[in-house]
């Protein structure tokens, strides 16, 4: 038996439709549950935190780690432009620094895609590994710009 007749004879339409429906609804329910998971966890965590806050609430709010940098609305795509934006942060860390420290500062200051940008900076040899997880900053020079233009 072949064709539509075979599909009907073996209950194929019902199996395909029910199968698709079951897998779809299963994953929809799972995605709904995981979308609410962090909210539920927050509810559980909130109570003890509030209680603790009542006991130990400091009079003064702790200072934020933000450096008050004004980020451009459109983040530049050019790696040299990005390096210019990163420069003040790196200078604040000193001549050599851990990548994790820089990453943490970027994250706290809402820099977009910090992980990817750090990888790009490493690939462009602007971030130079100094061994043992320590890095140095090798800012792009004007010559680099000229070479790029000539190239």
């Amino acid at each position: 038996m072949y064709g539509l007749q075979a599909i009907t004879a073996h209950n194929g339409w019902a199996m395909a439709f029910a199968g698709a429906l079951i897998v779809f609804s299963g994953l929809v329910v799972l995605s709904f549950i995981i979308s609410q998971l962090h909210k539920v966890l927050l509810l559980f965590e909130k109570k003890p935190v509030d209680f603790q806050n009542d006991l130990e609430r400091p009079d003064i709010e702790p200072p934020e780690d933000k450096l008050g940098l004004s980020l451009p609305k459109q983040f530049p795509a050019d790696i040299r432009e990005i390096a210019r934006l990163y420069k003040p942060l790196v200078e604040a860390l000193g001549e050599t620094f851990c990548l994790s420290e820089l990453y943490e500062i970027l994250r706290k200051n809402d820099f977009p895609h910090p992980h990817i940008t750090l990888t790009a900076l490493r690939e462009s040899e602007i971030l130079i590994p100094d061994g043992d997880g320590v890095f140095t900053w090798n800012p792009p020079t004007e010559n680099d710009d000229n070479e790029k233009v000539e190239g």
Partner: peptide
């Protein structure tokens, strides 16, 4: 989590092929 729906949608290939294989005479 909304991206999970794309994982569900891509499984439709399985059920279309089930129909195709039945139509070709497979048990």
């Amino acid at each position: 989590p909304v991206l999970m729906l794309l994982g569900a949608a891509a499984q439709m290939g399985i059920f279309f092929t089930l129909l195709g294989a039945l139509a070709l005479g497979f048990l």
